[in-house]
Amino acid sequence: MCTFKTINEQIDILKHRGLNIHNEERAKRYLLTNNYYNIINGYSKFFQDHEDHFVDGATFDEIRELYWFDKEFKQVLLNGILNAEHHLKSIAAYRFAEANPRSKYPYLQIENYDSNSLNRNWKLISRLSKILSSNCNYDNNTIYHNIHSHNDVPIWVIVDYFDFGTLRDFIRCLPRNVQNKIALDCIDFINDNTPNFNGTFPIDVMNSFIKNIHETRNVCAHNNRLLKFECRSDSVYFEPLHSVYTISSNRNNPRKDVFTTFISLQCFLSETEYSVLNNTLRKRVKHLNHRLHSISVNNILSSLGFPDNWHEIDPLPQS
């Protein structure tokens, strides 16, 4: 059974395990307002040489800095993912409207989706119907305006109400010829970030990238710990991208860490957007490196799947 520990008892436990606390009053306030479980159980393991014992020189301030780094890293990464989400919404809405130019509410019609995934299609249609019904009675949104003014809500209007999970399912449910057009549109982003690319972007690769970006987005948006996070499935191997980072197609080398998701954003972001994302994350790592004294910053990079000394690589040019 878990028993309640006062803040003073929590401090005593940490000191007994070898953690240096230079300002106990500040540490007590921090634990009170940030939750011992989230801070210590989530981040102190990086500073321990064996179970429940801290490495020589480890400090409470280092744990606090690591917690703050994880939070900032998530915010920066989430901003990049939101940019990718914006592009995908625009492309998917355009290609769907192009394929269904004359019918009202075409996204509620089962025949406009891939006939090989009927169960998934009906679930999506139900979700889209709920988006319409939950907004049709309030006159402060564009769905209400379109229903009452045009008796129709076009895809380019409702798509703005999709969360990332709905967007992902919408793209997966589209006929393969429409998905192929979306993937083809993404090649401009790949060309921006990988100038020597001259191939195709298979839809199974695109969908696996979107799936793992979605999972990573949820961790960032819900402020769960990103360090040591892994997606449930490997990204499908994409040689033009993965080979640049010496990522293997071997099944014994998973492609489900944060770094693999991060580099996959090159397929959905402009060169400038990806450069800003890359360089901002790099600055966050460099800042953390200056704050860590008892462990190497490479321990933290490794927990995210990033290469050792990644922060020392030259920044990408920003136009």
Rank of each mutant, 00 (worst) to 15 (best):
N35Q: 10
D70E: 08
K130R: 08
A93V: 03
E65C: 09
L128S: 02
P106I: 05
S133K: 09
N137A: 02
E72L: 14
E65I: 00
S44F: 10
S90E: 02
T142Y: 13
N112V: 03
E98C: 07
Y67A: 13
I40C: 00
S115K: 14
A92F: 11
V55S: 07
N38Q: 06
H53F: 06
Y37M: 02
R102N: 10
P106G: 08
K45C: 06
H145F: 14
A92R: 10
D56A: 13
D61R: 09
A97M: 15
E72R: 15
Q48R: 05
Y36P: 13
Y30E: 04
Y36I: 08
A84K: 11
R64L: 07
L66F: 08
S129V: 00
D139Y: 15
D61K: 13
Y94R: 08
L77S: 11
R64F: 01
E72A: 12
N112C: 06
I131A: 08
E85P: 04
K45Q: 07
K45A: 11
E111N: 14
W122S: 14
R29L: 09
A93G: 07
S103C: 01
N116F: 14
E62K: 01
D52Q: 09
I39T: 05
N41K: 07
L78V: 11
N35H: 10
I81T: 08
S126W: 09
I81L: 10
F60P: 04
A58H: 01
L128H: 00
Y94V: 02
T59S: 09
F69V: 12
S90L: 03
S117G: 00
K71W: 05
F46Q: 03
N146V: 00
N135K: 11
L82K: 13
L32E: 15
Y43T: 05
I110D: 12
S115A: 13
F54G: 02
D49Q: 08
S126M: 10
L108F: 12
R29C: 02
S117D: 13
W68S: 12
N35E: 04
Y43D: 06
A93I: 03
L124W: 06
H50K: 06
R102F: 13
L108V: 06
D61E: 14
S44N: 05
S44G: 06
K45P: 02
N119L: 15
E62S: 05
I110T: 14
D56F: 07
I40P: 00
N83C: 10
L77Y: 12
N41H: 11
F60H: 05
A93C: 05
N137G: 14
H53Q: 09
I39Q: 01
E65T: 01
F47A: 03
Y107N: 08
K28F: 04
N41G: 00
I131K: 10
R127N: 13
I63P: 05
K45H: 12
L66S: 07
Y138W: 08
I143N: 07
N135Y: 06
Q75T: 15
S115E: 14
Y94I: 03
Y36F: 10
N41W: 01
I91A: 09
N38T: 05
L82Q: 13
Y67C: 07
A93Q: 03
A27E: 00
E51R: 05
K74Q: 15
S103P: 01
N100Q: 15
N112G: 06
L82T: 11
I91F: 15
D114N: 15
A84Q: 08
G80W: 09
R127G: 04
